[in-house]
Amino acid sequence: MHQFLITYQNNMKKYSIVLIISLFLVSCSKDEKQIEDQKTEETSSSILKLTDSQLKNMAIDTVSFRNAVLPTTIRLNAKTEVTPQNTVSITNAFGGYVKRIALIPGNYVKKGQVVVVLEDPQYIQMQEDYLTTKALLEQANADYSRQKDLNIEKAASDKTMQQAKASKQTLFVKMRALEEKLRLMNINPSSVSLNNIRRTINVYAPMSGMVSEVFTNTGQYVSPADAMLEIINPSSSLLNVKVFEKDLGNIQVGQILNAFTNSNPNQKLNAQISAISNEVNEDGTVDVYAKITNLNGIRLAANMYFNIELIINQLRANVLPEEAVVHFEGKDYIFERMNKNQFKMILVEVGVSSNKMVEIKTTVNTNKIYISKGAYNLLTALKNSGEE
């Protein structure tokens, strides 16, 4: 009896194992059939068959793949940088007390405009010295003429005449020196007279531009070495473009780039690369300088930030016309022409586009014929046939 129970239990285990294996095989068979059915359904849903009359009503054109070089766009950052020749520090050779300065950073000034008025007793002294020297020179000229005439008549010695001549020349040199000093003060020597002695001088803008910094205020004394303000000409600025080392191989002098601000991305200025630095910055970038060639109405300011678009030709890819790619439910498709009346919709991944051509990244048969014009008509017809 015990042996019978053992035999019975062993047989039941075998039957259980066979049953489990059978159920597993049936389940796998059903899953495989479902997958095959799904694939068949997906394949049938991507195939479009048209009658001759339907095809006649659809204006379609065919196209083949092309292998072409597409320009790619590198996006970089830049800011305006004013060159030294377009930056002026306003100083005065004689110093003085600031009587008037009515400018703040951001103000635009024109060449020749008064930007600072200075006041100092030395300006009065300089004009006094000039008028005194001028009067003494007139006296010296008269004395020399008299001594010259006397010398001709042998009434005066040569030494006396030479002394008169030296005095005249010394005063003449001093007067010329004082005239130049007055011009450095922006005082016209011909305007200085007994009735016109000024205690203030004007400081003028040497060029048109924008005030970038103001270093002084009313009442402050400025020495000849002190800059009172700084004027820049931002319209002649360069763009300092930060280029990473990995992109440096694509950068060349003479390349054209577009620049725009975050606030107005549709308004772009044009610039041309003029110089490339040989040093790498701490952040791994290299300074590339571009000369602005067309502002396109953009008003520049110092240290103004820009986004840069630089187009380079380096990508060789399989391309189709942009109209050959249809977008549906967040995905991109193209249509292959299988025969005269039959078309197949293929899911693809697109890349960069340029000049109405688009890169197809997905591996497809490039020897087949594909639809360009009318691809959306085929998509509409395919979806309508699937709903029927």
Rank of each mutant, 00 (worst) to 15 (best):
L76Q: 04
L76P: 02
L76T: 00
L76S: 07
N77A: 12
N77Y: 02
N77F: 02
N77V: 05
A78S: 12
K79L: 02
K79R: 08
K79E: 09
K79D: 04
K79S: 09
T80E: 03
T80P: 01
T80N: 07
E81H: 11
E81Q: 15
V82G: 03
V82A: 06
V82D: 00
V82E: 08
T83N: 08
T83Y: 01
P84S: 05
P84D: 02
P84G: 05
P84K: 04
P84N: 05
Q85L: 05
Q85N: 07
Q85M: 04
Q85E: 08
N86I: 02
T87L: 12
T87Q: 13
T87D: 03
V88E: 10
V88T: 13
V88A: 14
V88H: 11
S89E: 09
S89G: 05
S89P: 03
S89Y: 11
S89N: 11
I90M: 09
I90V: 13
T91E: 07
T91C: 03
N92C: 02
A93M: 15
A93T: 14
A93V: 10
F94G: 06
F94I: 03
F94R: 13
F94A: 10
F94H: 10
G95C: 05
G95E: 12
G95Y: 07
G95D: 11
G95Q: 15
G96M: 05
G96H: 11
G96W: 04
Y97F: 09
V98L: 14
V98S: 10
K99S: 10
K99R: 13
R100H: 09
R100K: 14
R100N: 06
I101L: 15
A102K: 14
L103P: 09
L103M: 07
I104T: 09
I104E: 07
P105H: 13
P105N: 08
P105G: 08
P105R: 14
G106N: 08
G106F: 13
